[in-house]
Design a protein around this nucleic acid. Sequence first.
DNA 1: CCTACCGATCGGTAGG
DNA 2: CCTACCGATCGGTAGG
Lengths: 190, 190
Amino acid sequence: MIAEKKNKKQTILDAAAVLFREKGYSATSIRDLAYRVGLEPSSIYSHIQSKEELLVTICLDCARQFTEGMQQIMESDYSPKKKLKKLIELHLHIAYNDATSIAVFSDEWKHLPESALPVFIGQRKEYANNFKEILKEGKRKGIFDFENVDIIFNTIINAMRWTYYTSNKHSESDVNAEITGFIIKGLKKD
Amino acid sequence: MIAEKKNKKQTILDAAAVLFREKGYSATSIRDLAYRVGLEPSSIYSHIQSKEELLVTICLDCARQFTEGMQQIMESDYSPKKKLKKLIELHLHIAYNDATSIAVFSDEWKHLPESALPVFIGQRKEYANNFKEILKEGKRKGIFDFENVDIIFNTIINAMRWTYYTSNKHSESDVNAEITGFIIKGLKKD
DNA sequence: CCTACCGATCGGTAGG
DNA sequence: CCTACCGATCGGTAGG
């Protein structure tokens, strides 16, 4: 049945994400993965085409979530400050709903095959450009205060990055409140 | 000659750091490394004991730099704000002086062998505790404003993390000024 | 520091 | 989805 097969493929993808996160992509073997989902190593290939395909699927799925969330925010007529708050919400939402995949997306993308790497990097770049546009808009309107948009963008996006690895030690709303307060204050005029 | 041998070992370590950073620890082979430094694969073992040893050396050397820098700051009688500024300086100084090693330290530590992992994690934990002490001291004295020290610590330390990967696109002093301003403002009372 | 080589493991295929 | 198997590559050793 098609439904069963889809389910099995998702099971394999989920298990792959867990292993890629724990041991890294390169150190994860098809054998590891197969035994984890209760198959002989060769049987995996009834469901997937290659080990690389798994990484591509995980990374591009995550990238899509960011891209789609960004699109919605860009299309809104929110103020730059509200847009930034929505972006923080977006990052935390993805982190808390798909922690394993986002950790793989974040740490293992460099092992993407050459066929997928340019697409991936392109999406990242566009996301960064949109993010920077919001920051620059805020600066133009006198809401945000900073010198170099590239430096401040990198600082802010990494300030959120650790949330991709937490094991629900803190609630999403606590983290959101603390990070949002910190970033918004950090961008204020002194 | 001992001096020559030391030199060769350092050459191997440097090349290993570059490869570990580019391809990751697991995907880097002893053959890659040997050819990179102009040796036959087996000859590497005249200079090192194992592939793992290289990762251990790189990671623990980096960890030591952080620990020593922290110790100096903790022993000073600077204000919490000045201590925090010194910590940002420390991170940037290490990042700009040893970019390759710190990237490996930051991304590949999970591949450390079991013999080194507890030591490494212990040092990280102690560093984190010291960092949090400074934040808490600032809060007690009414200089810093935040709710949860663990959340704000993670946010701040990751805000600096992207500097481990820059290719000198921005000057150390520009980055320092921007990040320091952002973090200090972010911790202010609203 | 090299030649020669080891056993283990890798991603993946053939054929049923 | 399994049994059987492939060539390639791995970290590392023996012996000089």
